[in-house]
Structure formats: C-alpha cells, structure tokens
Design a protein around this nucleic acid. Sequence first.
DNA 1: AGCACGCCGACT
DNA 2: GTCGGCGTGCTC
Length: 804
Amino acid sequence: MNIASVIVDVPAKQTDKTFDYKIPEKYKDVIKPGTRVIVPFGPRKIQGFVRDLKGESSFSKLRAIIEPLDLTPVLNEELLQLGDWLTEHTLSYKISSYQAMLPAALKAKYEKKIVLAKGTEITDLSGNLIELFRENREIKWEDAVTKGLVQQLQKEAASGRVDVVYQVKDRVRKKLLKHVSPAIDPDQLKETRDKLPPQASGQQSVLDFFLEHPDPVEQRLILSTLGISQGSIQSLVKKGILKIEELEVYRDPYSEREFERKFALDLTNEQEKAISPILSAIEKDLHEVFLLYGVTGSGKTEIYLQSIQEVLRKGKEAIVLVPEISLTPQMVTRFKERFGDLVAVMHSGLSAGEKYDEWRKIQRKEVKVVVGARSAIFAPFENIGIIIIDEEHETSYKQEENPRYHARDVAIQRAKTYACPVVLGSATPSLESFARAQKERYTLLSLPKRMNNQALPTVEIVDMREELRTGNRSMFSVKLFEKIKDRLEKKEQTVLFLNKRGHSSFVMCRDCGYVMNCPHCDITLTYHRYNEQMKCHYCGYEDRVPTICPECNSEHIRYFGTGTQKVEEELLKLIPEARIIRMDVDTTGRKGSHEKLLTAFQEGQADILLGTQMIAKGLDFPNITLVGVLSADTMLNLPDFRSSEKTFQLLTQVSGRAGRHKLPGEVVIQTYTPEHYSVELAGTQDYDRFYQQEMLIRKVHQYPPFYYLSLVTVSHEELMKVVSVTEKIAKFISSRLTNEAVVLGPVASPIPRINDRYRYQCLIKYKKEPELKNALKTILDHYQQETGTGALQISVDLNPYILM
DNA sequence: AGCACGCCGACT
DNA sequence: GTCGGCGTGCTC
C-alpha cells in the first residue's frame, strides 16, 4: 500500500479522476484516504485529496507525494463516499464536491514566484533585475506580470540563473497564543515561592496562581487577572521556573457572551404527541423522515431540543440546519442555553478562521451539536443520531453554484447511512415536502395550535387601490396608520415589513422613463448609498450616479423602488415622536450590528422595527402586537413558478411575529392584489387550502412536485452560437427521453446577458427519466473542449430553485 | 486550470 | 530566417 490515488485541485473535466502517486516512506503512517496532500502536477505543485491507497498502479512512472497537509484526514470514509454521491447527483467535479464539504480555510492558496537559482549571484543577472532582487529575495509572479518582466525572467530561467517556484499554502493559520506554565514540579515551585524576596510581589502572586492551577494559561489572561506586568513573568522564565509556549487556541465568536444554563420545558399534549414518533425512531436507530408542520409559535424548537437531548443521551451527535443563522441569534441562544459548550455554530457571519475553528471542534468530537446554515450539513461527525432542518421550505438550502446540492437531499442521504431520523420543520412546508408527507414517504407530525393556546393573530387585508381612490397617496393605509398610533399609545411594539424586490433602489428619469442599465448585462443597476455609486450585481460594473438624464437631459432623475429608508422618513413626518429601528443591508452591514439592533428593540428602546426579509424569521418578542406588511405583492410578479408559494410563506412567517405571548396580535397586509389566493389565504392563515389550490396549478402547468425540473443554461459571447448550441442540446435531450418528458426551449434566460455573454436555456420537465443524467453527461462531455477554453459555458442544474 | 509544444503570419 | 500568435493536449 505505498501508492495513493489522488483527486487533484483542478476543476476540469479532463482532471476529474484520480492520479496515482508514490507515498514516501516517512509519510507512510500519516497519509490515509481523506488526507490533503501536496503533489507535483506537471510543472506545478497543487493540492489534492487522497481518495484510496493501493499496492500497485497501472502507471509505470509515478511521482511522489511532496507532503501531507493534515495529520488526521479531513474527510473520513463516509464523507468521501458522500462526496462521490454529491458528484453523481449534481454532475459536478469530485474536487468541487470535496471542497464544498470543508471550510474554505482548507482550500489551498497558490503562489508562484521567482527566486535566485542556487549558486547564482545577484550580479550575474541582467541590469534591472539586480535592483529588484537586492530589494527582495524573490519576485511574485503577478508582480513580474504587471512590471512586464515575464520575458526577461523566462530567459533567465532558461539559462538557469533563476528558478520558478510553486507554493501551496493554507488559507488560514491556526491561531497561536502565548501560554505560561510551570517548568518545574509543584514542590520546587512552592520552595521557590517561599524563597522570593518580599518586594517581588508580582512573582509571588504568579507562583501562587500556578500552585493552584498547574495547567498552561494564556499570558494575557494571567496578566490581567493578577494585575501584574510582563516583567514578573519574564524574570521567572529567565530563572527557568516558568516556561512560555505558543499553544493553539480556538477563535470563539461567542466568547464574550454568557449563556444562562436552561433545562427542558414541559411539553404540551400536542408537543408530546408530535415528539413521540421521533423519540421512538431515535430509540430504535431507524431512518425516517418527519415533516414537523407546526404553525408559527407552536413550539417546534422545544421539540428539536428535546429530541437532541435524547440523541446526546445515547452518545450520538446532532446536526441542526437553520436558514442563515446570523439572522436568528435567538435560535443560537436557545441551543447554547440548553447544551452549553457542546454546541458549535457555523454561519456566514463568521470569519474564515472562526468557521475553521468551529469545524475542528466538530472533527475532534469536542462538541456534539452543530447549529448552522446550509454547509453545516457536512459536519464531520461520525455518529449522527438526528438531523434537523428548521424552516425547511427556505430556498437558501439549495446551493446555487457547483455542486448545486440541496441540503435536504444531503441530510436524507447521510441519515440513511447513520440510520437516524431527519426532522423537517416548518409552519409553511414546501409543496414538495408536504406532498411527500401526503404520500406517506415522510411522516407528518402536526402542531396546529400555538403554545398556551394563544390565538393566531387576526389578519386584515387592505386594498391599496381603494386607498388611492379615496385620496390616500401615502404608503400607509388609514387602518395601518391608526393601529400604529394606537400601539404607540399603549406602549406596545410594531413590526413593519417591507417586501422589497431585489436588493435596493434603482435610478429612473421621471420625464422620459430612462432606467440605468448595466452596459454588460441586461439588468438595471442598483444604487449603493455608501459610496454613491451605481453597481451591477452580476458583473460588478460601477458607474457614478447621474445628476441629469443621459437620454433627455432632464434633471428629474430620482431613486426609485427605495425601501426602508423612505418609509422611515415618511413615518417620522407623520409621527415625529415614534422611535424607529431600521434593519436592512445598510444598517446591519457590520458584524454584530444585527444582534445589537434586535437587542435594542427587545429592551423596548424603540416602538417600531422596520425591515426587510431579514426580520421575517425567528423574532420572538412578547411585546409585538402589530405587524404591518407594506406591500404584499412585490414578489408575486416575479417570473418564477414558486412566486405564489414564496409570497404565501413570507406573509405567513411575518404574520407569525405578532402576539406570540400573552398579548394578542394583529396583522395588516397592504396589497394591490387582494384577490390573489396566496395573499387571501395567507390572510386566513390557511396552509391546507393554499396547498390544495397551488397543487392544482402545479399539476396543470406541469411543475414540481408533479414533475421534476432540470435546467441547462448555455452562455457565449455570440448570440448566434448560444442559440444554435442550445437548440442542438434541446434536440439531443428530447431524442434521448420518453414522450412523457417536456423539453422547453431554447429560450432566452430571464437575464439574457451577463458580463457580455448571452444566455439561453432549456428547461426539462419530467417524471421518470433514467436516461436524463446520462444524456446531460454526454452533453457536458461533447462540448468539453469548447467549455474548457471558457468561450462556451454550459451549466446544468438538477432541481433548480432559481430559474435564471 | 496552467503550461508546454507546435504550427502559421509579420517582422528584424 | 525568427518572434510570437494561440489551438491542442497533457498532467500520475
């Protein structure tokens, strides 16, 4: 077994296979499947993952692994196989799958540089290089390129005076901190302590401290707690009594927070009924998928917590997925309060280093529970007892780049391997999941009532067209405005929700209707206030904000579609005494500001919380008795077959923020389309009827859950090329599928051009097409050369969530 | 993905 | 005759 087959870090069709390398004798014990290694690949050095060990290779002239990057494999056998499964299910490269399963910190960084060759003097080089190498022992390749030195250096390299060096580096280092500990045994320590002169009080207290706690302590901690100077420690080190060493520490994003330890709450009868099948699956080590369908405020979290408790009792581990967790600090708190240090948290708000450290806690089995966003599904546990996906309908569980996986599918796959239950929780389940529950592929568990029998909030739908007709041109209906004022008087809190389309505002000319578009993409530019620039969200193009219209020279060019800020201004004009907290991308940009704003609101420092999507979830404050949705229908008009579903879900979620505790809640939904069933049924909070209605439509239009979807997107700089390739692809796919499948296209993508590349797509709707995956693979193979050069791009998304 | 090798046009 | 364009194919 002295040969390793390695998946190399080159995401391309031709390299999507293993390469064999000899294992040097000295690394024989370290290199195992799942270890990251540095290998020579052509002229360069790159990172790779050991996939297997073997005794012989069909290849005769093997090169040797340069060095391992890990002492313990970063992927265990289960995760390696999961990676292969991912590759197969998303038609992506193996290397991309492996990398997706690990924190970004473990992805290699490459550096190419020029150094002086051995035995060469700087003065041997030609003129201008001498200067450069005097200043720096080496030149980075990029610098050589920008300074136009490439040719010259290549010549020098050819005559052997300089060498090109390739380096592989880790992205993030382990954090090391100075730790102090005794260098001698306790008896000697005591002796030294007693011999110290009385004026050496600092040294005395240090030694007293170590007599009590002999373990290594962070230097800065001991300095601050004992109130001594570094000198005291230094002199003890010099005498050989203490020693200082650099020890690895975890970056702990929650180190400054204290979590009060809390214990299980009593369950209601309904909760008891819902949890018992889960507990029994845990008990019997059975794989089963549960759909926990519970209205907002029905106590789903407590069910998660108690199920996990049972899993921990059995000595197993738990994964909890929540949508973009930085948005729900309340959730983290509840888990930390219940399980303390056994919880790792993984979300996008953490730095790369923090994520890496949380990951290592999992890998080393120092924690038993991980709470995190999508990628936490790959937590390297080895004895999983339950996987929970909260807000299961959230589309953020689908990754929109390769590998395009859905966390729910990965969860079920892993749960099968570990023979453990999966719990999908939601107040508004996705149609896919609810349909599966109806077909009894999932076990349905319902919590139809709120805790403590608290009533669901009463919802009123206000027709904004009517308001306009009666002369109210503001963005608040009379009803909503009256209620806001009423809450202010009663000292109760209001949440105002603005369902903005897209991110932020765009610029439009009031005279001629000119809208600023990206010159490279068919998309409007968005206005960014922080740098007063117009920016394209697809290609990064930036432009200044125009003061006069480029089309008609009018000065009436204004920001439109503006959100929270405008609402805030208007509200303050109407009710100057209102204290408002605004939450949007602008006010929550900085790390931790999200949490600060929420805490301020919770402590009653404001009457009104005004925000976008980010306030729809997880808010659970007792004093909120009014929720206002300013315009319910902005999302309805999107070209997406899920827009009704999304609207219903969002409205129901937001409404659920009101009246969760003792005080009853009220909701006002303002809309221009009150007759639309998703608005109307969100008003009566009738999921079941919404489900029936939407299923009818999905059936007629042949959409999920009745049909599966796959989307092929083709892009190229030339329109003709895109159209012809997409046409060929569509034809080819049709020819390989049964008559039951529907192939739509080629049609222009909803965003027809991004970054000067035209985009066409082809949508496949099907029920059962075992040949489809092979057909798609054939296409990717067939266009291999062309896609390799980047001129033509073909992306395949099995079960897309965004059809763009 | 890089990088080398290799085969054609425009320059000293 | 040579420099350099980027098409083609390989990397254990």
